[in-house]
Design a protein around this nucleic acid. Structure first.
Length: 154
DNA sequence: GCCAACGTTGGC
DNA sequence: GCCAACGTTGGC
């Protein structure tokens, strides 16, 4: 079993949006970065753990726990001309962008960036590294366990 | 709004 | 293949 941190802008899809969706599940649309896509397409498995992270907002941080809820399939927004994520270069027979569904299991308190950075044992987390912009990053098991513990405190 | 850091594009 | 220009991300 693997663990992942997945960023979402709450103005697009917040943890509350995900919670109120059918089965608390959302398709992770709009990823247009090859490395992030490859994680979803090649490495994610159903039931992998997901840290739901809010980015580009007042209080960035981990806001929920979820799971990978599907195998990979083509991101429908790449074919939707009206979508912000439309990709004219992607063909139906050979879709460029694949995604997975993510199910929210629990909304947590906000474990914000300053708090994450204050924990020495988390300093190796990719999301905390300078210049990191990847919207999906793998999370080590030891970091996952520690974050779950931190989320239960306070 | 600013800006550092990064990814992508395209000319050569 | 190089690399400058450009666009985007995302914290502050």
């Amino acid at each position: 079993m693997n663990y992942w941190l997945m960023k979402s802008e709450p103005s697009e899809v917040s943890v509350d949006d995900a919670l109120s969706a059918p089965k608390s599940t959302v398709a992770w649309t709009g990823v247009r970065n090859y490395q992030a896509r490859n994680y979803m397409r090649d490495l994610m498995r159903v039931d992998d753990g997901v840290l739901f992270y809010h980015s580009s907002c007042a209080e960035p941080g981990v806001v929920g726990i979820g799971r990978v809820a599907s195998t990979p399939y083509p991101d429908p927004t790449q074919f939707d001309k009206k979508s912000h994520y439309y990709d004219a270069g992607s063909k139906k027979e050979e879709p460029r962008w694949q995604l997975v569904d993510v199910q929210i299991l629990k909304k947590t308190r906000t474990l914000g960036l300053p708090e994450l950075r204050s924990v020495a044992a988390l300093e190796d987390m990719i999301v905390l590294k300078k210049g990191n912009r990847l919207s999906i990053t793998p999370v080590e098991a030891k970091h996952w366990r520690l974050i779950l513990k931190l989320l239960d405190q306070k």
